[in-house]
């Protein structure tokens, strides 16, 4: 029996960012007054969606990709157990993360896909309410995402 979780690897996981989207959010808070914000950024403050805001601030928003399939029920009766499948046919899929935009904590889980393992994951997540499930996939160094709305009848967070 081996509990094979070595510390170096854990560190790499932590710093290597399983937190793609959250990293983007953090980046918003990192902008220094006086540099990029010399002028009041109308487009950023007028942004109605997160993506618009990030784009206006010069943050790269992950592209959508038809090579990623996100399967989840249209209506989930029990928010405590929502089956989700992510399937990426992108070459060199390295990482898959699952996020739910209206959960108290947005990031559900993050997976590292080594070479030889397929870009396929089937798991079960909790959802507090009707929300968008996002699959964030890192392939060949770039981030992609797909999202899907799931209606939740009884929240389970």
């Amino acid at each position: 029996m081996e509990v094979g979780i070595d510390l170096e690897r854990r560190k790499a996981l932590k710093t290597g960012g399983g937190l793609g989207l959250l990293g983007l959010l953090a980046a918003v808070g990192l902008i220094q007054p006086g540099s990029a914000l010399a002028e009041w950024q109308k487009s950023a403050f007028d942004a109605k969606t997160m993506d618009e805001a990030l784009t206006a601030l010069g943050v790269v928003v992950p592209e959508s990709s038809a090579a990623i399939q996100l399967t989840a029920p249209d209506v989930a009766e029990n928010g405590a157990v929502v089956p989700v499948t992510v399937e990426s046919s992108l070459a060199r899929t390295e990482q898959i993360s699952i996020l739910v935009d209206k959960n108290p904590t947005m990031l559900v889980s993050s997976f590292v896909i080594p070479e030889g393992t397929e870009g396929y994951l089937n798991t079960k997540i909790k959802m507090a309410q009707t929300a968008t499930v996002i699959a964030l996939v890192k392939a060949d160094g770039k981030f992609y995402r797909v999202s899907r709305e799931v209606k939740v009848t009884a929240g389970g967070c």
Binding site: G4, R9, L13, G18, A80, V81, V82, T85, V100, N103, P104, T105, L107, V108, S109, S110, F111, V112, I113, P114, G116, T117, E118, Y120, L121, N122, T123, K124, I125, K126, M127, C157
Partner: peptide, 26 residues
């Protein structure tokens, strides 16, 4: 057989008794 085929991190929004299905070559 001693080689990592999948690893990951969980937050609190993973369902009770976490389920995982995945595939690897070999």
């Amino acid at each position: 057989e001693g080689r990592v085929v999948l690893e990951g991190q969980f937050g609190t929004s993973v369902s009770k008794n976490p389920y995982l299905g995945f595939r690897f070559k070999g």
